[in-house]
Design a protein around this nucleic acid. Structure first.
Length: 866
RNA sequence: GCGAAAGUGGCGGAAUUGGCAGACGCACCAGACUUAGGAUCUGGCGGGGAAACCCAUGGGGGUUCGAGUCCCCCCUUUCGCACCA
């Protein structure tokens, strides 16, 4: 800092984020290998990942928050000597590109590329430390060819199959949705749009093959939030039960001659007094074929169920049913049971048919009461005293804690035993078996849209379904496709694409025109980062073996059952084909809260949006990042307040002025080992000791926040406290009326130059993960030559962080009545003496009898008197 | 209906294992420096009271020398699941 140039000095001492940040931005632009992970290293590896964004056009504050957390962690791990992999990419296939294309007449690829360029520039301006040499863009053939390759592998293994079935159709998306993409009957992208059911031929992935393992391994994911694990558990929805065939006594129609019922309580089957079918059950069509009256009633029930489902309250539907006039035989006792159709029985769970046991099921009880069906008790409470006559239980009696009665040879068994024995019985007799059902269904991945990975399959009149040979991959997504027309897959209107040659017979074949769900792209993208430029394989197994599993994954909880369950499935499939060795992709998962403003999620329609660009322009990237970490703990929702970032801006200015003022008065050109040793001196004098203690306390707090709870808001608060104390400490030495702002005047208070340098260097190191621009600027100002990014994280000596003397409160009968000052390690006897000396305490206990004295070392003294 | 999380000053939030409630920041008030201040520095800032003190962590009970923290009941908000047979 040139002393003779007054104006320069003045300008330099004012914190100007634009000046500081543009300087470092330029430097960082020059060095493309700055944040590159080392391919092989003796250092321990650390893979930190934030969920890749959809390139919608611009980053929003939610992104900034997500990436600020990840970036702070990445920088912290670098400073702790890890070989860090911190990549970024683009989830760049998907509907918005098509919709934008239709709205603005821009091809999806152009729109997407423009958005990527803009968002990448924003990320760089925000100073996120990504290894851009590993950038993954899912809409490029070099990426999606491996989607196609994986699809062929799945097909080879029977894990991809084609089937006609009822599928979810979103009229706004004009495409099919997976079950996971339907929320309460509505489209996950259009919360006001009801999903319709359509019969379509679709490609499915057999995720249900892994249902059991996906469920079981949740227990191993101890680094995941319980909330997410619970959501996945619920989604998989494992249920043990028994399938039982009820005979109709002859074929009714195409749907056959038996009703298969799923029940978790086969032990209650002797209490069944009817069979209930879902209105959509195939047999119902047979029953109503020649019975218009019944059909009308069934249609009514169907409509009621549909309405309730659409309203999202199928749980509260008023139960209605109609007797079909038919009977089915209970195979256990040969009893004919009336068959009903009921509006509360849904086709998409179990078999769509139940046995109704009013005595032991609340719903059946309610239904039976309403329609006057018989109620027969077959389970009674287990009695501890066998002599006692078993009382009639309060109905419905639904617990497993009971004993079976009135059930032939099964009478006398307890419920759990009975379920097992009765299932075995069914299997032996050939009318049923124990089974496990899941709520999880196979993953439908066909999409009738343009902007996605073409499914590499062919349809030949002679050879049927034929996969595209591996060597012909990728099947390139054609350009210049008219996507403005609706109805059917856009690719179907491109003859050059559709018309192909059958690789088996050489005859004409038709190409599959549906594209893949974009969740395919994101199911394995993080493996590609490990070996992003491989053109022989999706990745090299050994390279992936080094980096995986991901040590820390950070993203929004909204992907709890979509992306995160698909990714787990994909990993297990790749493991089974020998491509990866890990069972799970992610070791630790962190779900950050949303950014809200004025009590609502930021959205254009509410007009409460704050953009990163505005914030960067006004306060700089550091302030925007720091505020997004400071305003709330990362796992909670963040309430954005414009005035809050002002405070952060002020804080950064305070740090800047403090360091720049004192940088001229501290030691230069000394090695870290020198000032670090001076910093850790034992027996430092007054002011120095106060600063030293606070410094090491701060190092401890920030370090522990990184290791533990990730409450960066308190880490940053700790840094603020340190800065506040430095201001006061340095001010204090000068005396009254002299402030640090004075341009000329008496010399500022000086700490030992080496010590001083150490203090400020540590402060800068502590801020480096959160505010990299300012930290780099100050690091350089201090004359440090090492790369701050790899500079060792500060250490703390617990002994030096310790207070010598502490003030502890003295309570009398639970009220604070006095305070004593004692050495931090004072023993009980010493404390007792001090308490006895204290005037206020003496007054409080005067004339009373001391019953008990509790001394909590270092915390408080509690005296009980009577 | 079931399950989970949360409820603390005017606001965002601290208080990690039961031990001084309100760290840090915002807003506000006062002072300093100033031609000026929307810059900067310093101080104040839960409520009541002149004070001693008293009251206060959604409400009500309890355990304890001591409860924001543990237990029971209730209220509110958010999220997840929902006739799952």
């Amino acid at each position: 800092m040139p002393q003779e140039d007054k104006t320069a000095t003045v300008r330099d001492e004012r914190y100007d984020p634009q000046r500081v940040e543009s300087k470092w931005f330029e430097r960082w632009q020059q060095d493309t290998s700055l944040y590159a992970a080392e391919p092989a290293s003796t250092k321990p590896k650390y893979y930190v990942l934030e969920m890749l964004p959809y390139p919608s056009g611009a980053l929003h504050m939610g992104h900034v928050r997500n990436y600020s957390i990840g970036d702070a962690l990445a920088r912290y791990m670098w400073m702790n000597g890890y070989n860090v992999l911190h990549p970024m990419g683009w989830d760049s296939f998907g509907l918005p590109a098509e919709n934008a294309a239709i709205a603005h007449n821009t091809p999806p690829r152009e729109w997407t590329q423009r958005n990527i360029a803009n968002m990448k520039a924003q990320m760089k301006r925000l100073g996120f430390a990504y290894d851009w040499s590993r950038e993954v863009t899912t809409c490029l053939p070099e990426y999606y060819r491996w989607n196609q390759w994986f699809f062929l592998k799945l097909y080879e293994r029977g894990l991809a199959y084609r089937k006609k079935s009822k599928v979810n159709w979103c009229p706004k998306c004009a495409t099919v949705l997976a079950n996971e993409q339907v929320a309460g009957g509505f489209c996950w992208r259009h919360e006001d749009t009801l999903v319709e059911q359509r019969d379509l031929e679709q490609w499915f992935l057999r995720i249900t093959n892994y249902a059991e393992e996906l469920l079981r391994d949740l227990d191993k994911l101890e680094g995941w939030p319980d909330k997410v694990r619970t959501m996945q558990r619920n989604w998989i929805g494992r249920s043990e039960g028994t399938l039982v065939d009820f005979d109709l006594g002859g074929t009714v129609g195409p749907a056959g001659s038996t009703i298969t019922v799923f029940t978790t309580r086969v032990d209650t089957i002797y209490g069944a007094t009817s069979v209930q079918l879902a209105p959509e059950h195939p047999l119902v069509a047979d029953f109503t074929a020649n019975n218009p009256e019944l059909r009308a009633k069934v249609d009514q029930l169907k409509a009621e169920q549909r309405k309730a489902k659409e309203a999202g309250d199928i749980g509260e539907i008023e139960k209605h049913g109609v007797f079909t006039g038919r009977y089915a035989k209970n195979p256990y006792n040969g009893e004919p049971l009336p068959i009903w159709v009921a509006n509360y029985i849904v086709m998409d769970y179990g078999t769509g048919a139940i046995m109704s046991v009013p005595a032991h099921d609340e719903r059946d009880y309610e239904f039976a009461k309403k329609y006057g069906l018989p109620i027969r008790v077959v389970i009674v409470p287990s009695s501890s005293d066998p002599e006692e006559t078993v009382a009639e239980p309060q109905l419905p009696f639904t617990t497993y804690d009971g004993m079976v009665v009135n059930s032939d040879e099964f009478s006398g068994l307890d419920c759990v035993d009975a379920i097992r024995k009765m299932s075995e019985h069914a299997e032996k007799k050939g009318f049923g078996k124990a089974t496990v059902t899941y709520r999880l269904k196979d993953w439908g991945i066909s999409r009738q849209r343009y902007w996605g990975t073409p499914i590499p399959m062919l349809y030949c009149e002679k050879d049927g379904i034929v996969p595209v040979p591996e060597k012909e991959l990728p099947v390139i997504l054609p350009e210049n496709v008219d996507i403005t027309l609706t109805g059917g897959s856009p690719l179907g209107r491109v003859p050059e694409f559709v018309n192909a040659t059958c690789p088996k017979c050489g005859g004409p074949a038709r190409r599959e025109t549906d594209t893949m769900d974009t969740f395919v792209d994101s199911s394995w993208y993080f493996y590609r980062y490990a070996d992003a430029r491989n053109d022989q394989a999706p990745f090299d197994s050994n390279v992936v073996g080094y980096w995986f599993p991901i040590d820390q994954y950070i993203g929004g909880v909204e992907h709890a059952i979509l992306h995160l369950i698909y990714s787990r499935f994909w990993t297990k499939f790749m493991r089974d084909m020998g491509l990866v060795r890990n069972d799970e992709p992610v070791e630790r998962l962190f779900t950050q809260g949303m950014v809200i403003k004025d009590g609502a999620k930021m959205s254009k329609s509410l007009g409460n949006v704050v953009t990163p660009d505005e914030m960067v322009a006004r306060y700089g990237a550091d302030a925007a990042r720091l505020y997004s970490l400071f305003a709330a703990p990362p796992d909670r929702d963040l309430d954005w307040q414009d005035s809050g970032i002002e405070g952060i801006h002020r804080f950064l200015g305070r740090v800047y002025r403090l360091v720049s003022k004192h940088s001229t008065r501290m030691a230069k050109n000394t090695a870290r080992s020198v000032w670090e040793e001076r910093l850790t001196i034992v027996g430092a004098p007054g002011l120095e000791r106060d600063v030293q203690r606070k410094l090491f306390q701060t190092v401890r707090r920030v370090t522990e926040d990184f290791k533990g709870r990730w409450h960066f808001n308190t880490s940053i608060a700790a840094n603020m406290e340190l800065v506040n104390q430095l201001y006061l400490a340095l001010e204090h030495e000068v005396g009254e009326g002299v402030t640090l702002e004075v341009e000329s005047g008496p010399p500022l208070p000086t700490l030992d130059p080496e010590f001083s340098r150490g203090v400020f260097a540590y402060l800068v190191l502590l801020l480096a993960p959160f505010a990299p621009y300012l930290a780099h600027e100050l690091w350089e100002m201090l004359g440090e030559k090492d790369n701050l990014l790899r500079a060792p994280w500060p250490k703390y000596d617990p002994a030096l962080a310790k207070e010598e003397e502490i003030e502890i409160p003295v309570q009398v009968n639970g009220k604070v009545r006095g305070r004593i000052v004692v050495p931090a390690d004072a023993d009980d006897g010493f404390v007792r003496d001090r308490v006895a000396d204290d005037e206020k305490v003496r007054a409080a206990i005067a004339g009373k009898q001391v019953v008990k004295v509790i001394i909590v070392p270092g915390k408080l003294v509690s005296i009980v008197v009577r």
